[in-house]
Amino acid sequence: MQDPFKSRVPNLNGPATDLLPVVPSDALDLPAVAVALFVETAGSLSFVAQSGETRSVNMTDFSILPVGTRRVLASGTTATGIHAFVVG
């Protein structure tokens, strides 16, 4: 199978290289900073942005939040089916 990612240098201008399931936690960061989050089921999403600031937003079903994210917080998060877009 041909792999179009084989010689590609990961960067923020191209597609994510993986989509990881997220378990919200008040104590643990994601394994890698996400470049965006995908939410399957609507609700509130509380997170720590790449900048270190804590934010909360209301998400609709099947929506994408294009914000660098370090951690998705359990406290204040009611959205479910959360996935992290990662690069590299």
Rank of each mutant, 00 (worst) to 15 (best):
M1G: 15
M1A: 15
M1I: 12
Q2V: 11
D3I: 00
D3M: 03
P4H: 03
P4A: 03
P4T: 01
F5S: 13
F5I: 03
K6Q: 13
K6E: 14
K6D: 13
S7V: 09
R8Y: 13
V9K: 13
N11Q: 06
N11H: 07
N11P: 03
N13W: 02
N13D: 12
N13Y: 05
G14V: 00
P15M: 00
P15E: 02
A16C: 03
T17D: 04
T17Q: 04
D18Q: 07
L19S: 10
L19N: 06
L19T: 03
L19Y: 07
L20Y: 04
P21I: 09
P21D: 12
P21V: 13
V22G: 08
V22F: 02
V22L: 07
V23I: 15
P24R: 14
P24V: 13
S25V: 11
D26P: 10
A27H: 14
L28I: 14
L28Y: 14
L28Q: 15
D29A: 05
L30S: 01
L30E: 00
L30I: 02
P31A: 10
P31S: 09
A32V: 11
A32H: 03
V35I: 11
V35E: 11
V35R: 09
V35L: 09
V35M: 12
A36F: 00
L37F: 02
V39G: 13
V39T: 15
T41H: 14
T41L: 13
A42L: 14
A42M: 14
G43P: 02
G43Q: 06
G43N: 04
S44P: 07
S44F: 08
S44W: 05
L45H: 02
S46H: 03
S46Y: 01
S46L: 03
S46G: 07
F47S: 07
V48R: 12
V48T: 15
V48N: 07
V48M: 11
S51W: 09
S51G: 10
S51F: 10
S51D: 12
G52D: 08
G52Y: 05
G52A: 10
E53V: 15
R55Y: 12
S56K: 08
S56Y: 04
S56V: 15
V57Y: 04
N58L: 14
N58I: 12
M59T: 15
M59Q: 15
T60W: 06
T60S: 12
T60H: 09
T60A: 13
D61V: 09
I64G: 06
L65R: 08
L65K: 08
P66F: 04
V67D: 07
G68N: 06
T69L: 05
T69V: 10
R70D: 03
R70S: 07
R70I: 05
R70V: 05
R70P: 06
R71I: 06
R71E: 04
R71G: 06
R71M: 06
R71P: 08
R71K: 14
V72T: 09
V72D: 04
V72E: 03
L73C: 04
L73F: 02
L73A: 11
A74V: 06
A74C: 09
S75M: 05
S75H: 01
G76Q: 00
G76S: 00
T77M: 07
T77G: 05
T77I: 02
T78H: 01
T78G: 05
A79W: 02
A79Q: 06
A79R: 05
I82V: 05
I82H: 08
H83V: 05
A84D: 00
F85I: 00
V87R: 05
G88L: 13
G88T: 11
